[in-house]
Design a protein around this nucleic acid. Structure first.
Length: 932
RNA sequence: GCCGAGAUGGCGGAACUGGUAUACGCGCGACACUUAAAAUGUCGUGAGCCUUACAGCUCAUGUGGGUUCGAUUCCCACUCUCGGCACCA
């Protein structure tokens, strides 16, 4: 009777041993290669950890232990991000001090983590609310201030009426506070703002240096939202001017009106009663209501003034509409309804003129223009013909060299013909029917192709129509010449799009049914001297011709950095009546957060700190006269924007991080996290680049590689939440199944980046795996078991490669495969066992160490695999006949082709049948395909 | 709407560079051990057809096409799901 594996006492034994021997204490060692592996540090909430949290921590722990076994010097720290609203709100609700709440929560988190067996160097633990830590957060702020990157502003900001504090744009979900769900208001308050926009381009460009998942990089790009365009100034009829930002200066000739934001300065000057009513209604509407109304465009004419389109010299009206944002660009646009979807919507609602100035034009994929040939422009028509009696549409299936091509009825517009005439004439010619025009495509479209019979390239400048016949009863005879070229076919409406071959004709069909603006590029029309130019080229030329200038705009706004709350880093500034805002001298840092009785928000827009006279009243560091401290605090993101640097040198009193230590450890080699990663990464990259500029760090990016973490859902498929009562506490799981089974299960659940629901049934599988491992120790013998060699070397290879690639699930699978083989072999050599336990140890460290100790084995060195041992003496080769697998044969992996084929022919004789195979394909060691 | 990722058994998922689809695990079924149950072990397990059996056949990787001796993998079109952004001119 084999003894049961007692995970409780064995795991405890090893955890104690690691703790007591400080096994994972890390010091700089120039002789060893370094690896810095980091999790996004947790926010110690009152709810404690659920089983989703440790998933990332297990991954970094495996990576860290693996790298240690490879001889790397590994930095794998843990700390706490503990300032911010949730802690403060929690404290208010429970009537305790936030500091006490944080301490309690941290203790709880630490206890939960301690049972899972992580290899953290706890001597480097940091806490963002520790004055020794936030001293340096304040120091960074001062450096930003000194470089002019922190400034005061009185612009209206987002105010959350429930949290009673200002928020950055990034803290919102649409127009709702992401913390509490209240709808935010606009409030003008004195704010500290950081010039993150200064770094927008560098943050965008340096993404190319990073080994990050594409979707995270893309989210960063979206967030930065760079767009290149031009600023163009329109003169007004009152002698003034109005400047707009546009990315499409090429469409200037199509600008038939202008729109300014309700906040625009010009509004005041000309506002009449209607304008005021509109602007008021916008203010009173929450953004929620505005979104609920969808994309319905609203607006009102600005009376008494018009603008002059600098290209057409025509007077155009100016509207006020909320679809133009005051905070982007110049708060004003030139509206080009033909080429902008929003302007088009607005123009339709307000009956404004629409002028097409760009013709979309793509080269035909089947018959592209040939280089070197001259291009001739031809006016053409494309006409869809519907048989009213059947609802079917006419198409032409072409013959001869155009076999396989299907088009619609089309042709040229001859001298003296209108496009409508031409369309009807083509129908007469190709379908022998008298039809009438029902509708037409609003836009001219075009395609470039090569007319090889004429040896010229053509650009078909095309009008599109829909025509109709009552029925085809009156159809005449189609000429023999036309019959020879193509056959007229009638197809269902649904089929038309898929039957048409040329992309251009598909586009015309689409536009016949969709009334949309043309937002793509093309060549210019209705644009005077610029007609015929490519739109890309026209951008520069038109901008130049009207004295505009090229500019770059970003969606990214400067970072509103003040919070009117207690629980955050005080902003180290003193306001002096004489000297204005004065930086607190660095030797006076940290500016300590005062101990107070009442830290509840005042709601007045002033921080609770404002009420503490003895703290607020101070002397000016410059003139020595009386002055007041800045009472706003920093947002939660501040402390987490640089913490990865402090882990390198957590107890340094004279610098944020020592130069040598930074040089040794930076950058973070692997950074693991998920969820709200976008903002944190933007802010941290911004600060890091700033610190690079002032010489504090030596790398341009903080996180070389990022692995995105998929979440764990509750067993019911919903998010784990107190609200649903479906939280699973890792403490309970560890108590029941053991830390190793827990660790292996979380890695085995699926690909690391996948979101998967927890399954109590499935964790039993990894529990069995651990139990079977335990029993396998009875099978250990002195001599190696030959039959296990191949699988062992494969396992060493696969587990190592999979850890590098964060493909933990397949590594676990391979370790299970090996254990299966071991059980079948009914024995394993000591050295083989040692190698196996070594690769197992990062996943299941407790049992691996226990088993290793049992046989006196050293599992601290990662084994190397022998490539020559990855394949066995015989391989199974599939035999296919006509691509279908029929049977298999056994072969030496390097068997000569002739031998393989001979064997295959015999094995598959009954499928091959009589006669010689047409062809035989042999893929070494894999497959033989006999084609008969 | 735009951008990104994805769709494989009852479930989580695997598959090198285009080469035996369904590894590994869960679940399920049968059997063994047991007075019994749990635990454990052994065997089986994509669907359908055919056969007493051995064997054999057909169909299956979201849908429809294409390239190829051969496609989960490459190409084209489409459907759906998830994530991010969302009137950014």
């Amino acid at each position: 009777m084999a003894e049961q594996y007692d995970h409780e006492s064995i795991e405890k034994k090893w955890q104690e041993r690691w703790r007591e021997s400080a096994a994972f204490k890390t010091t700089e060692d120039p002789k060893k290669p370094k690896t810095y592996v980091l999790d996004m540090f947790p926010y110690p909430s009152g709810e404690g950890l659920h089983v989703g949290h440790p998933k990332g921590y297990i991954a970094t722990d495996i990576y860290s232990r693996y790298k240690r076994a490879q001889g790397h010097n590994v930095l794998h720290p843990m700390g706490w991000d503990a300032f911010g609203l949730p802690a403060e709100n929690f404290a208010i609700k429970n009537k305790i001090h936030p500091r006490a709440a944080v301490e309690k929560n941290i203790a709880n988190f630490k206890s939960q983590l301690s049972h899972i067996g992580f290899d953290y160097d706890w001597s480097r633990e940091i806490n963002t609310t520790d004055p020794e830590y936030y001293k340096w957060t304040q120091w960074i702020f001062l450096q930003l201030y000194k470089k002019g990157l922190a400034y005061q502003s009185n612009e209206p900001i987002n105010w959350c009426p429930s949290c009673m504090t200002g928020l950055a744009n990034e803290d919102l979900d649409g127009n709702v506070c992401e913390r509490c769900g209240s709808v935010v208001e606009k409030r003008a308050l004195p704010q500290w703002v950081l010039k993150i926009t200064e770094y927008a381009d560098r943050m965008l460009n340096d993404l190319s240096l990073l080994q990050w998942p594409e979707h995270i990089k893309e989210a960063q790009r979206n967030w930065i939202g760079r767009s290149e365009g031009a600023e163009i100034t329109f003169t007004l009829t009152d002698g003034g001017s109005l400047t707009v930002f546009t990315t499409r200066p090429d469409t200037l000739f199509g600008a038939t009106y202008m729109v300014i934001a309700p906040e625009h300065a010009l509004v005041e000057k000309y506002a009449d009663a209607a304008v005021r009513t509109y602007v008021e209604s916008i203010k009173n509407k929450t953004e929620l209501e505005r979104t609920a109304e969808g994309k319905e465009k609203t607006g009102v004419l600005l009376p008494g003034v018009k603008a002059l389109n600098p290209a057409t010299k025509q007077e155009i009206p100016i509207y006020i509409a909320d679809y133009v944002l005051g905070s982007y660009g110049t708060g004003a646009i030139m509206a080009v309804p033909a080429h902008d979807e929003r302007d088009y919507e607005f123009a339709k609602t307000f009956n404004l003129p629409v002028v097409q100035v760009v013709v979309p034009c793509a080269p035909d994929a089947i018959n592209p223009p040939k280089e070197g040939l001259e291009e001739v422009k031809r006016d053409t028509v494309i006409v869809h013909l519907r048989d009213k009696s059947t609802g079917k549409y006419a198409l032409l299936d072409w013959h001869g060299s155009l076999e396989g091509i299907t088009t619609v009825i089309m042709g040229g517009v001859e001298e003296g013909q209108t496009p409508e005439d031409a369309a009807l004439a083509e129908i007469k010619e190709e379908a022998a029917l008298d039809a009438s025009i029902v509708s037409s495509v609003r836009w001219i479209t075009a395609a470039r192709y090569c007319a090889s019979h004429k040896n010229q390239n053509r650009c078909a400048h095309t009008w599109g129509f829909l025509a109709e016949v009552e029925s085809i009863e009156k159809q005449g005879a189609i000429s023999e010449k036309e019959q020879g070229l193509h056959t007229l076919v009638w197809v269902d409406e649904k089929e038309v799009a898929s039957r048409l071959t040329p992309a251009h004709q598909k586009q015309v069909w689409y536009l016949l049914h969709h009334d949309e603006a043309l937002s793509g590029p093309g060549y210019l029309i209705n644009s005077g001297e610029f007609d015929g130019l490519d739109s890309e080229e026209a951008k520069k030329k038109i901008t130049g011709s009207v004295g505009g200038k090229a500019v770059v705009q970003y969606k990214l706004r400067d970072w509103v950095f003040s919070r009117q709350r207690y629980w955050g880093e005080p902003i180290p500034i003193v306001h002096c009546p004489k000297d204005g805002a004065v930086a607190v001298p660095e030797d006076q840092l940290p500016v300590l957060l005062p101990e107070v009785e009442s830290y509840e928000p005042s709601g007045t827009g002033e921080s609770p700190l404002a009420n503490i006279a003895e703290w607020v009243n101070t002397t000016c560091p410059q003139c020595g006269g009386p002055a007041k401290r800045e009472t706003n605090t920093m947002p939660q993101w501040a402390g987490s924007s640089w913490y990865y640097l402090r882990f390198m040198d957590p107890h340094n009193n004279s610098a944020l991080v020592g130069k040598d230590k930074e040089k040794y450890w930076a950058p973070v080699d692997v950074y693991v996290g998920g969820d709200h990663a976008v903002r944190h990464l933007i802010y941290a990259r911004f600060w890091h680049k700033f610190l690079y500029d002032i010489g504090v760090v030596t790398t341009v990016e903080p996180f070389a590689r990022l692995e995105f973490l998929g979440f764990i859902l509750a067993e019911d498929g919903r998010k784990m939440s107190k609200r649903y009562g479906n939280i699973i506490n890792p403490d309970d799981v560890v108590a029941q199944y053991g830390a190793d089974a827990f660790r292996v299960y979380e890695m085995f659940m699926g690909p690391f980046e996948n979101t998967v629901a927890w399954s109590t049934a499935s964790i039993k599988g990894t529990e069995r795996f651990i139990e079977r491992l335990w029993r396998a120790k009875e099978l250990v013998q002195e001599d190696p078991v030959e039959a296990l060699e191949v699988e062992l070397h494969r396992t060493i290879k696969k587990v190592g490669e999979d850890i590098e690639a964060f493909k933990f699930n397949t590594a676990v699978s391979q370790m299970m495969v090996f254990l299966n083989a071991l059980e079948s072999a009914k024995g394993i050599g000591k050295e083989q066992w040692q190698n196996y336990l070594t690769v197992l140890a990062p996943y299941a460290p407790h049992i691996a160490h226990e088993l290793a100790e049992h046989h006196g084995l050293d599992i601290s060195q990662w084994p190397t695999y022998d490539p020559s041992k990855l394949t066995s003496a015989l391989v199974t080769v599939a035999v296919q006949v006509n691509g279908k697998s029929r049977t298999t044969i056994e072969l030496a992996p390097d068997a000569p082709e002739a031998e393989a084929i001979a064997l295959a022919k015999v094995a598959a004789a009954k499928w091959i049948g009589e006669g010689e195979p047409k062809k035989i394909i042999y893929v070494q060691g894999r497959v033989i395909n006999v084609v008969v």
